[in-house]
Structures are given as structure tokens and as C-alpha cells.
Amino acid sequence: MCLAVPGKIVSIDTSVPELKTAKVDFGGIVKHICVQWVDVQEGDYILAHAGMAISVLDEGEALQTLADFDAIARALESD
């Protein structure tokens, strides 16, 4: 139920200011998603849940987490 899927903002439609929507590309499948709750631009990645963008994905934090996996791998090898 709480499934949320990452997707890339293709374009943003602000014609209804109370319900801003965006075309979002989910690995080739494009859907309209409401982006009223997030501050986004074209090219940003969001997490979509039940038609709503609930969060903007943070590239810096994602890279930090991946770097942590590498650090764990190095620590295993040096043990």
C-alpha cells in the first residue's frame, strides 16, 4: 500500500495553481503526477505514491549512501 516509485519530472503544468501536475517518466512509462507538495523543476527525481509526489530524491544523500556501501566493503576486505 505504501509503495512509492522514483520517477523523473519531464514537464510541469501549473495551470491549476491548487493542483500542480507533472509528467513523470518511470523508466519509460509516463504518468501524470500531482506535485503540489514538493518544490521541483524539470529533471528532478521524485517519489510518487498513489498519484502524488511525496518526496524529492536527494542525489547527494544517495551518493553518500552508495559511498557507505563501498566503505563497508573495504572494511570487510581489510579485516
Binding site: 491548487e18 493542483l19 503540489q36 498513489a50
Partner: peptide
């Protein structure tokens, strides 16, 4: 409308849109 905190506000956004 069924959900935890992830889904609840999406239902409320629908309510607000119907109200608007």
C-alpha cells in the same frame, strides 16, 4: 479511503480538490 500516514494526505488532497 484506507491508509497510514503515507496515503492519508493523498486522500485529503482529493477532498480539498472536491471542495475547491
Amino acid at each position: 479511503a484506507v491508509g497510514f500516514e503515507t496515503t492519508i494526505p493523498v486522500h485529503l488532497a482529493a477532498l480539498q480538490e472536491a471542495r475547491r
